[in-house]
Design a protein around this nucleic acid. Structure first.
Lengths: 139, 139
DNA sequence: CTTTGTGCAAATTCTTTGCACCAAA
DNA sequence: TTTGGTGCAAAGAATTTGCACAAAG
């Protein structure tokens, strides 16, 4: 089974009809684990799909988020970023180079806190920011 | 010592020159612990300061954040929100009523994780979202 | 005086919307 | 043939910028 078919199958699990564009966007997100912006996705795919429009990227990602197939990250104030890894995990964004790193998984404990007893929690996002090791020369 | 003088003193601690506008904005943030948007601050203060411009609110809040006097919250995708409580604490935003709640303080543990050893952490933001007790009738 | 802050209007940027055309079931 | 998807252009909304005037030290 090729990648294209795998992605079709994957999208169907989320009740998403796999068009060529949607498949390409999900493929991009699965291949590039860089938490890309709309623009990065569009700019990369556009040369290979000349008729592709940015509206479609917006439509597609909004649909993916709505269906729970990808995560929308708020860590970057400038642009929305997307992550095909839908597990609960923390992120770090470097203020110098702009890269977004995956950190640790979030413990179940974060959802069971007594302070949350009156809240119906749908999602949690933990966002660190600062300078990464590459930028500070720490590693 | 009146409130106005207290706020002057407070701003000076962050190396911020206390103009009338800046003092009013900080006063607003300290009095209204609702994590307001730019627009909310502007709309409330504007009737009392007819010449006030939204640009000044933008300038002021950007300065406050830069100087570390207030926190910028990314929890609301639509608009930036600001918090004069600069302690590290988690937030919850209700997707139905839009209210932003303060939750618990963040434990020091969150900054000492081994996965962070190569990162120079400047800030952490923990953002929960879902429905609040008032909206679900849970309390 | 000289520096810094304010405020208007315009510009920019990100995202959404309306609508016509196209594709798939 | 009917439903849903795509893509263009336009609209909308949030934020930033340029610049002239005002205020403060």
């Amino acid at each position: 089974m090729n990648n294209y078919m795998q992605i079709h199958k994957y999208l169907k699990q989320f009740d998403i009809k796999p068009s060529v564009q949607r498949t390409a966007v999900m493929d991009y997100l699965m291949t590039h684990k860089t938490h890309p912006t709309i623009d990065e996705i569009y700019s990369t795919l556009s040369p290979f799909m000349p008729t592709l429009s940015k509206t479609t990227i917006y439509n597609t990602l909004n649909l993916f988020v709505e269906k729970g197939a990808v995560l929308h990250l708020s860590i970057d104030e400038k642009n929305a970023r997307y992550d095909a890894d839908i597990s609960n995990h923390a992120h770090f964004m470097c203020k110098r180079c702009g890269k977004v790193y995956d950190l640790f998984d979030l413990k179940q404990e974060l959802f069971n806190k007594p302070q949350l007893k009156n809240f119906d929690i749908h999602s949690v996002e933990i966002s660190y920011s600062g300078f990464c090791g590459t930028c500070t020369g720490m590693n």
